[in-house]
Structures are given as structure tokens and as C-alpha cells.
């Protein structure tokens, strides 16, 4: 029987096992960004821009905030990270590898035939991946299901769902937003990686989402606005979100697409196109 959650009797961590300092988180985020560049360039395809914008958020979750155990990916009490923007798989793979879910060397197999690291996430193949994603707008619904299961089972894990801002154009995102408020899902935190760009240009030019924060508010969510590249703000927001018990919380994280590499920042070209080997070399130097 695939995918059945089994409970393990072994002792489990009650807090994040890495518990990095802000200075260490910054270094880890750089390392994950380097992995993103290296693995996408090696693959010859992929989505570096949206992986780099989410790098700090993902780093904070895996190395400071979430209760998880890389030795036991199916541990029933783990906090869940659900990557709804499935094209940002490289940043998740980097975090999982550095956490110890699989060897770091495996990152080089991204998108290659026979690899466990698919172009978009696949929960049946990759240890630590909670959801198969790639068609946008589905992660929040999935996260609500996971959070409701925690309520039914009296478990205290938290469910984090990372969405893109472009993904808020999908109708299903708003179906989910309505229902999370209706079901008063207070153990669910949505994070919008608001890099203001999508595949073919600026989000405001393609399908304007603003005022985004007011929309979530109007749908009954507690909203927090932050700079998605400032660890102090990210950590404070995640802490605040855990305390809110009146319903779901969304963190609107203002980010920069391609963050960390000067020539990739806010450059729409790098949404779904990777750095050439020469560009990758320059990028890695900037990320040293």
C-alpha cells in the first residue's frame, strides 16, 4: 500500500533539529541558492527565478521553524510543508538534501530519466515531498485537508503552504481561501511568495491581483505583510501565525524573482529558463 502514513514509536524531536541562527540561516540560504543554480543549469531546464525568490522562506522553515525529522519523513507529528508552486521544486529539493532526506549529490540528477527529482514535485518519488504539484492553484486545498486531519486526530502539527502570487489567479485558490475560513482552520499558514512576476511578464500587466492583502483579509484570513528576504521578519511572521487561533493566517512575503543573482533579479527570462554554464559561473561567484 503506497503512501499510507505509519506511526513510528521512536523518540521524535519537539522542535526544529537545526535551529540555526539568523547569520547561519543567511549562509544556508546562499548554499540552497547555489544548489538551485547548479542543478537547474546541469538539467538544462527548470525554473530558477521562482526558486530563488522563495529561498529565504524555505530556509527559515526547514532550518529554524518546522518540526521535522529527515530520518523519518512519514513521522505523523511532523509539521508539513506543501509546495503549491510546484515549479519551484529545485529550492525544495535543495532544502531536503541539506536537511538529510537524501544525498546532496542526488541534486545533480534533477529532471533526468530515472531520477527521484522530477521537474515538478512528486510525493511518491521524493522523500520529504508532501504533495505532487505542477498544475497551479491546488496546494492550498491539499493543505486544508492535511490540517483538518490534524484536527480530527488531535495532533498539533502545523501545515505551511507556499503559493506564488501568480497562482492567486487560479480560481481554486479562492475556493480554498473561502473554505479555510469557513472551517476555521487555525493550524494552517499560507505564504504567498509575492515576486510580482509570472511566466510572461509582470503580474500587474497580465492579471492584476492588487490589492492582494485586502483580498485575503476580505476572505477571512489574518494577514501579515513582510519582506520575504528579511529573516527577522520571516521568523517573526511565522511566530505570529502560530499564535493566531481564530482562523487561518496568510503571510504575504514581498520578494524579488531571481533574488541573490544580480542579472536574474526581476528578469522574467529566468522564470522558466536556466542560466547558461557561463551565467551559472557568474551567479555562483555572486553567491559565495
Amino acid at each position: 500500500m503506497p503512501n499510507q502514513i505509519k506511526e513510528f514509536p521512536r523518540a521524535a524531536p519537539r522542535a526544529n533539529i537545526f535551529n540555526l541562527s539568523v547569520a547561519e540561516l543567511k549562509e544556508m540560504a546562499k548554499k540552497l541558492r547555489r544548489h538551485v543554480i547548479t542543478m537547474t543549469t546541469a538539467a538544462g531546464s527548470g525554473h530558477p527565478g521562482g526558486s530563488l525568490s522563495a529561498a529565504d522562506i524555505v530556509t527559515a522553515l526547514y532550518f529554524k521553524v518546522m518540526r521535522h525529522n529527515p530520518q523519518d519523513p512519514q513521522w505523523a507529528d511532523r509539521d508539513r510543508f506543501i509546495l503549491s508552486k510546484g515549479h519551484a521544486a529545485p529550492i525544495l529539493y535543495a532544502a531536503l538534501a541539506e536537511s538529510g532526506y537524501f544525498p546532496v549529490e542526488e541534486l545533480a540528477t534533477l529532471r533526468k530519466l530515472g531520477s527521484r527529482l522530477q521537474g515538478h514535485t512528486d510525493r511518491n518519488l521524493t522523500p520529504g515531498v508532501e504533495m505532487s504539484a505542477g498544475s497551479l492553484g491546488m496546494g492550498l486545498s491539499f493543505g486544508i485537508g492535511v490540517a483538518l486531519a490534524a484536527r480530527l486526530d488531535h495532533r498539533d502539527y502545523c501545515t505551511y503552504v507556499l503559493l506564488s502570487d501568480g497562482e492567486c489567479e487560479e480560481g481554486q485558490t479562492w475556493e480554498a481561501t473561502l473554505s479555510a475560513a469557513q472551517f476555521k482552520v487555525d493550524n494552517l499558514v499560507a505564504i504567498v511568495d509575492c515576486n510580482r512576476m509570472q511566466l510572461s511578464g509582470w503580474t500587474r500587466d497580465i492579471m492584476n491581483l492588487e490589492p492582494l492583502k485586502q483580498k485575503w483579509q476580505a476572505f477571512g484570513w489574518h494577514t501579515i505583510d513582510i519582506d520575504g528576504h528579511d529573516f527577522n521578519q520571516i521568523l517573526a511572521a511565522l511566530q505570529e501565525a502560530q499564535k493566531i487561533k481564530t482562523g487561518p493566517t496568510v503571510i504575504i512575503a514581498h520578494t524579488i524573482k531571481g533574488k541573490g543573482v544580480s542579472f536574474m533579479e526581476s528578469n522574467v527570462k529566468f522564470h522558466g529558463k536556466v542560466a547558461t554554464p557561463e551565467e551559472a559561473e557568474r551567479a555562483l561567484k555572486e553567491l559565495e
Binding site: 499510507q4 502514513i5 504533495m131 485537508g145 486531519a149 490534524a150
Partner: peptide, 21 residues
């Protein structure tokens, strides 16, 4: 759980619940 007129959301919620046992 009555998911209202949100069939797409209902399938996603169902999957999340199933993924949790």
C-alpha cells in the same frame, strides 16, 4: 465537511486528508 460549490477544492481537500491517513 460540506465544501460548498467548490468541487475542485473538494478534491484537493480529499487528497490532503487521504495523505494524512
Amino acid at each position: 465537511f460540506d465544501c460548498g460549490l467548490e468541487e475542485q477544492n473538494m478534491i484537493g481537500i480529499a487528497a490532503g486528508l487521504a495523505a494524512s491517513g
